[in-house]
Design a protein around this nucleic acid. Sequence first.
DNA 1: GTGGTCTAGACCACT
DNA 2: GTGGTCTAGACCACC
Lengths: 118, 118, 118, 118
Amino acid sequence: MEYSTTAPIWLQVATAIKADIASGRLQAGEKLPGGREMAVQFSINPNTAARVYRELEEEGLCETRRGLGTFVSDDTARLQTLRREMARDAIGAMLKKLAPLGLTRADAVRLLQSEEDF
Amino acid sequence: MEYSTTAPIWLQVATAIKADIASGRLQAGEKLPGGREMAVQFSINPNTAARVYRELEEEGLCETRRGLGTFVSDDTARLQTLRREMARDAIGAMLKKLAPLGLTRADAVRLLQSEEDF
Amino acid sequence: MEYSTTAPIWLQVATAIKADIASGRLQAGEKLPGGREMAVQFSINPNTAARVYRELEEEGLCETRRGLGTFVSDDTARLQTLRREMARDAIGAMLKKLAPLGLTRADAVRLLQSEEDF
Amino acid sequence: MEYSTTAPIWLQVATAIKADIASGRLQAGEKLPGGREMAVQFSINPNTAARVYRELEEEGLCETRRGLGTFVSDDTARLQTLRREMARDAIGAMLKKLAPLGLTRADAVRLLQSEEDF
DNA sequence: GTGGTCTAGACCACT
DNA sequence: GTGGTCTAGACCACC
């Protein structure tokens, strides 16, 4: 058996910010805190903060403008894709857990439509 | 922000065994490996293995009979409940991730029924 | 015939503490000595001390707050139940010893009301 | 704190036999098994069996007749006293447990007369 | 062989 | 400082 290890901090922070973007708490084009400021907010090293922005940039969710700072992408199509990716991931994870119980996608639909409060 | 830590080994192993019980890979009443044997299988200390069985016992999924070993509970009602709990958890986790995206249970149903392959 | 064995140390200590809680020598919400301190007081290993607190916690008599310590439950209803349980146990044990002598509960009442000093 | 130790086997066996005498399972004057026979029955050493009879004899509950064996005392007054002693002990033990709960003999009577099933 | 108990000592996370 | 986790190894009781 393989034991799980903690995800790197930069990934945890990046994921949190992705969630904020997908949910709209961070708007398209909005300015993100600078590296030093983020380092304080998240109690991390400035180098780690930079790693976070690099990750978000590579995913096309942020843009860094020299001398101005880092901004949420204003590519609404990309942002829309992000939402779809996250929904897709959430559903995929559920189906992956349900499968070993012998439950299919149809079963999931049935359970969701049942009156139980999940 | 709170950073995640690794789940304790005993919990990871217990969770893996729970999954095996829920999926039927481990049958009701079946004997589980002894503490020392499990310690070898999972590369853990016998005391940690005992911790695993204690957890499963507290959840009513195993029974330990002194001098004989530990066995999967033969309480089929409990086992059935376990399956329901796990399905419920999987669905609940999904809804929790979908909510911040502005997606409801009805949206989840719609997405599951769409032709996309998740 | 089955010969009696000594009760495990953790149970003896737990029982002593239960008695202190039931008698009010330990008040609801009161802080109990930390694991290491208890280990010294009772001349046991810190791990055994932890076993004691685990037992008391499982019985709902203590609450452990990480980084703070272990405290007597402030659930007065539970504490009241404990008193009733202990009284019930004491009476049950007596009746169990009296039964083989052909003495019933009514006899016990009669003996208690007699002027003999027990 | 003082930890309990196991009672000596001879005492445990003697106590078991006392209970049999008090309850009438062993009648006044009845012959008890010989030392070797008892040793087998209780899985103890013949010397330990002898120790058991010595104890019972000192308490006036048995009589040893050279060449014949050991017999339950036919002193019915003594046997009656035994019954009273045992009842007294049972009640005394109960009161000793009730005292720290702030419960008196009168409370014990009240509890015994209540409709609860102990 | 099994699990149950106990000791000894390490490291980590939380407060 | 606290409790939580993990390791290592001992001895006992039960089957």
